[in-house]
């Protein structure tokens, strides 16, 4: 068991007029080598939730256990948690600050107190993983394109070699190619490096295609926590909280009026293709 959240609640600006309950009684268990998606309407508490997972934000109530140890205990070393749980913020390119790409990626490993060789090796590996060519290493990060900046910023967290990687809307504002590259990278990290990957998304298509477990937040409550298919079976309820099922689910739904039959809910284009082919074959 890697991270466990027990009855976690978080209130912004407690005891002021701006008081807001961002999370209420959240209970979650996140294990090793999982691929998890988090969806929810804007302001449902997604970002606040993931900021709890590496101890950046302290819960107003409840406890968070990392490998069985309460991270709020005074003898718990938070920096070591931040090394193991990598967090990539929304628009991570806004955190770039070094004069060249390579040094920026080195910032994380340098903070871990590693040797110079190790730092360089890790930075190089991380940049290779995100697909940044060596010719860009000594360019200023501010001169790169939006998608490249995003990938450099993700490399900055990857270079710390976390056991759990959390990304807050990693594809926001990217073109389709950039989006696919990032999502493929996430999937690779999960499949090849066997780490746990969690990402927040607004795209039902992306989570249906890439994750194995889907957590749905609404007004600070976890309302679903299941495999994507089981969650999207509740698409009527999802619509009421400002979400929906993938578009292909609706398309297949319509086709059922014409006689298409599926054994289970269809959430990806590939599944839809098979279902339609079977239907024609009959």
């Amino acid at each position: 068991m890697a991270i466990e959240l027990q009855h976690v609640s978080y209130t912004y600006s407690q005891d002021t007029v701006y008081e807001m309950h961002a999370l209420e009684d959240v209970n979650l268990k996140i294990g090793d080598n999982e691929c998890i998606g988090i969806i929810g309407h804007t302001g449902s508490g997604k970002s606040t939730l993931i900021q709890h997972m590496n101890g950046l934000v302290k819960a107003t109530e409840g406890a968070i256990l990392y490998n069985g140890k309460n991270i709020y205990d005074s003898d718990f070393a938070l920096p070591s948690l931040r090394r193991r749980v990598g967090l990539v913020f929304q628009y991570p390119e806004y955190q770039l600050f070094e004069s060249d790409v390579f040094s920026d990626v080195c910032f994380g490993p340098k903070n871990l107190g590693l040797s110079e060789d190790e730092i360089r090796a890790r930075a190089k590996k991380a940049l290779e993983q995100v697909g940044i060519p060596e010719s860009l290493y000594d360019k200023s990060p501010f001169l790169l394109s939006g998608g490249q900046k995003r990938r450099v910023a993700i490399a900055g967290v990857l270079a710390m070699e976390p056991e759990i990687l959390i990304l807050d809307e990693p594809t926001a504002g990217l073109d389709p190619r950039g989006r696919d590259a990032i999502l493929t990278l996430i999937r690779d990290l999960y499949e090849k490096r066997k780490i746990t990957v969690i990402f927040v998304s607004h795209s039902m298509e992306d989570v249906a295609r890439y994750v194995e477990r889907l957590i749905v937040l609404d007004h600070g409550h976890v309302i679903y926590d299941d495999v994507p298919k089981a969650v999207f079976a509740h698409y009527k309820e999802l619509e009421q909280i400002g979400l929906r099922a993938p578009q292909i689910t609706y398309a297949i739904d319509r086709l059922q009026a014409y006689g298409l039959r599926t054994s289970q809910i269809v959430t990806t284009v590939a599944e839809a293709k098979n279902a339609v082919l079977e239907w024609f074959a009959q």
Binding site: R82, L87, F89, P92, Q95, N111, G156, V157, M160
Partner: peptide, 13 residues
Amino acid sequence: DKIMMAQKARGAD
């Protein structure tokens, strides 16, 4: 606040 958290997540102190 945001940038501070992002850099803390990268181990900044």
